[in-house]
Design a protein around this nucleic acid. Structure first.
Lengths: 365, 365
DNA sequence: CCACTTATGACACCAGCTTACGTATGTCGA
DNA sequence: TCGACATACGTAAGCTGGTGTCATAAGTGG
């Protein structure tokens, strides 16, 4: 139900700017004629659009390429360094910040541990410090940051406020987006961590080719992010994917049980080595996970189920039993794969969210 | 991720045709000047668009309205009778067909009982016969039907084939859309019944104002339909919402238990009258339903949960306990309301699906 | 019959896209 | 070195579609 507004000639220019810009970014350094061919627009139109984009600082002209046949073509490139965004994960144990250019290329990472029991203001302070350090360390002026996005566990509403956190002390009620906006004095967004990880996976991870995706983030708790039609689905209050809170699903218990005495990593390692008890324990964990995952899968019927977070790094030791249990529960279970990211998935997703915002702005809504 | 194509001038005309047509249909009989005001387009543009639509047969000019001040304005109206669609429910016990014009006004209903154990070919034959009778009875030429849509229990894939049916004998594998296309020799669509009921509810039922919606259809089995952003979400294989198949959810058992000895209607009636045993039984049923419903609600976090189907007609006798159990299970449970339709919801949704198709065609994709 | 109201019709104008064609600027081979 | 060739540029003409303006038409009311 897109709001449908009447179009005058300027709408055409907007559409064609969009088309041209996309093509330019996809092709890299390109000539006018080539851009005309791939977009289906005339050379003149492309040129006019590129002039405009050049004036706005988004496109740069490079010296002509010599050595080829015929008159050398003017060459253009997208200026990925015209602006930057920062993506931040404000997690339970640590804060991760990523500085990226408009192409989403990460220029600098910054991490800092935060004690699990830290108060909200300490955690926020650490997050701000880390984000600023990330930018300062890269030698970039702070005003070059166009947008910031932050991901955090818990339910984050549409305004970017944490409306419920069950894991971080004092976290419920924190206006994460509002505070993050203060770091660089720019627009700021906030969302649930699993949601952002799902975005990242669709952008540059294991789910590049699909449009409907469920991402399950396995950590101290287990959360889920949902992409439908390639777009984040957050739900009415940002609580979409919070299946883990359903008692029957038992995710909370599963997470607790897994690491009852030994650390989770040790259990997975032992299971990989063939330790019977450990294998059984992983299998139990997988069985519990499968209940919630199948509820998600049966509801959404996604193209793909991606597992991420600390425990997902165990790989097939966990994935194989999970696949087995899922197949038992679901009519036709989706494909299950591991996240393509290590512990930077959430920050990458935050980068993507910030870029989405910036790209909308770039083209004047 | 819309496919983005370059725009020439004809794109503008398409957009403005869309805008004008919508406004015209919303306003009813209208003048040029008024249409210009409400669309934000100039009178000239509106006139040109309307001329074109008139030639194509979608718009009719009416005689000017006399008696008002000033020069009488030309008056235009959408021709809802330019084409028609048929929506069909192919259910377990009956077939329901609805004939509607382009405004979605139902011109004729037709119903026929079908024994639950009927073979697939009998059921299909009954469906075709009912659809044809519906149109013939209204005195409408069969070639005036532009599209047909059919809804049926079970999983229906994107091509309109029933890929899995657990209730109707021989139903798995039936190419419902393909066969329905033969009835009138027009394009035909098919989808799961709960999905269509959800569409109907969003169109003209209890969910008009919301964009994310879960609809639970309570019948011999319980199925669910999901609307996200006002659009049907069917999933990879059309299996979205099939949470009822999850054993932990226990919907199948719940449906069986409810009507163990007495009929379900009697149980609800007794509960309404205050019969303790019946109240307990409805409560148990509601409790079971709530598990699946909460899984759906926690996954999607919809604006609204609509209950439909035979059992939903019991009203608050069922809804109240369901709301109570939902509130226990969900972080913030969605509002729960009953369907606005009786047993015509699925056919109405089928009409809507067919109209969606027709409207896309009308504007040239 | 005249003043007033409201919509129409015709005209000029603008933005934006396309096609066509001549021209500029390089490479390649004799 | 020079002409043939290839390729891209620059300009102009023409189309579509949308907007604003202004005189005019066609009613009502006194």
């Amino acid at each position: 139900m897109t709001e449908l507004r009447p179009g005058d000639a300027s709408l055409l220019r907007k559409v064609n700017t969009q088309v041209t810009l996309r093509a330019l970014r996809r092709e890299g350094v390109t000539t006018l004629t080539r851009l005309g061919r791939v977009t289906g627009l005339s050379r003149q139109t492309v040129e006019a659009v590129l002039d405009e984009l050049g004036e706005r600082g988004y496109v740069r002209e490079l010296p002509p390429d010599e050595g080829a046949m015929g008159r050398p073509a003017r060459r253009f490139a997208f200026r990925a360094d015209a602006g930057h965004v920062v993506g931040v994960e404000v997690g339970g144990d640590a804060v991760v910040a990523a500085l990226a250019d408009l192409d989403g290329e990460v220029i600098a990472w910054e991490r800092a541990p935060v004690p699990g029991g830290a108060a909200a203001h300490e955690r926020l302070e650490a997050a701000g410090r880390t984000a600023l350090k990330c930018v300062d360390g890269a030698g970039l002026a702070r005003r070059r940051i166009w947008a910031v996005a932050a991901g955090t566990p818990g339910i984050v509403d549409r305004t970017g406020r944490v409306s419920l956190s069950l894991t971080l002390p004092g976290w419920t009620g924190v206006d994460l987006a509002g505070l993050a906006g203060g770091w660089f004095g720019c627009t700021a967004l906030a969302a649930n961590d699993a949601n952002l990880a799902a975005l990242a996976e669709h952008w540059r991870g294991s789910a590049r080719h699909v449009s409907d995706l469920v991402y399950v983030l396995l950590g101290h708790r287990a959360g889920a992010g949902i992409l439908i039609g390639g777009r984040l689905h957050q739900g009415r209050r940002g609580a979409a994917g919070e299946i883990g809170t359903l008692r029957q699903v038992g995710w909370e218990r599963a997470v607790r049980e897994l690491a009852e005495d030994a650390s989770a990593a040790e259990v997975f390692k032992a299971a990989l080595a063939g330790d019977r008890a450990a294998v059984r324990r992983v299998d139990r964990y997988a069985e519990h996970l499968a209940v919630g995952a199948s509820a998600l899968a049966l509801t959404v019927d996604p193209d793909l189920l991606v597992l991420g977070g600390a425990h997902a790094r165990a790989g097939d030791v966990l994935l194989d039993p999970l696949r087995r249990h899922l197949a038992e529960l679901c009519v036709n279970a989706p494909e299950v794969v591991a996240s393509a990211f290590g512990d930077e998935g959430v920050a990458m997703g935050a980068v993507r969210l910030a870029l989405d915002h910036v790209e909308r702005e770039m083209l004047g809504l």
